[in-house]
Simulated scan of single mutants.
Amino acid sequence: MARITPEQRKQIHEKLLVKGKDLFTQYGFFKTSIDDIIQACGIAKGTFYSYYSSKEELFYSVLRKEEEVKNLVISRIMCESLPPKELLIRFFETSFKTIEENPFLLSLYQRGEYERIVQRLPKELLDQHAKEDLDGSLEFVKFLQEQGVTENDPEVLIGLFRSTLLLPLHRQEIGEPAFSKMLKKMIECLSEGLTK
């Protein structure tokens, strides 16, 4: 049997991420099997296990890749020279739009799978994710504070950002047009309150 080249290995890995994301988005985590994934990728089960020890680990990799979008949003915001209130408004609006345009993240939360999946992930992966997320968030908080955001406690700011960014996932529950009006008002109030 011919050996897999590094380029082929990279292509298989990318295919696992893409097909895994597609299947998780379409059917959900719990209705997607490893057999579904390997069939979509055209690989053997042993090949799957040479990349990931479980479906949960593949899911975690897909989630991490999707979360890289957050880092891009933050990087762009940090390059803009706007007054602090406008920086926050831009951050919230861009983040909401990014979340609402991401079917993978929307389906994950709307199906209520996130908590159940997280419970199945190895503790070391969760700890690593939490540390990396906190480190990235602290850098952004420091930037915002240097720009004039008045809240001194980074944990409060990070908590505000996280809880606020989950709101688009409840658009259907709140209903239109109330949701859009509420979201706009909340962004303005938060941005104003954090920069006074």
Rank of each mutant, 00 (worst) to 15 (best):
K31Y: 02
T32I: 02
T32N: 12
I37F: 13
Q39H: 09
A40E: 07
C41L: 07
G42K: 04
I43H: 06
K45T: 07
T47R: 05
F48C: 12
Y49I: 04
S50Y: 13
Y51N: 08
K55Y: 03
Y60W: 13
S61M: 03
S61R: 06
L63F: 15
R64L: 07
E67L: 15
E68R: 15
E68N: 15
K70A: 10
K70T: 04
N71Y: 14
I74N: 02
I74M: 09
R76C: 02
I77W: 07
S81H: 10
S81N: 10
P83Q: 10
P83T: 01
P84T: 02
P84Y: 07
K85G: 11
L88S: 08
L88V: 03
R90N: 11
T94E: 04
F96I: 03
F96G: 15
E100L: 09
E101C: 11
P103F: 15
P103Q: 15
F104V: 03
L105N: 13
L106S: 12
S107E: 11
L108T: 12
G112R: 10
G112N: 03
Y114Q: 11
Y114T: 02
V118T: 04
Q119V: 03
L126N: 07
L126W: 06
D127G: 09
Q128K: 15
H129N: 07
E132A: 13
E132N: 12
L134C: 10
D135W: 08
S137E: 00
S137L: 01
L138E: 05
E139P: 02
F140C: 00
V141K: 01
V141F: 05
K142T: 13
K142M: 09
F143Y: 15
Q145V: 02
E146P: 07
E146Q: 14
E146D: 14
Q147V: 00
Q147L: 01
G148Q: 01
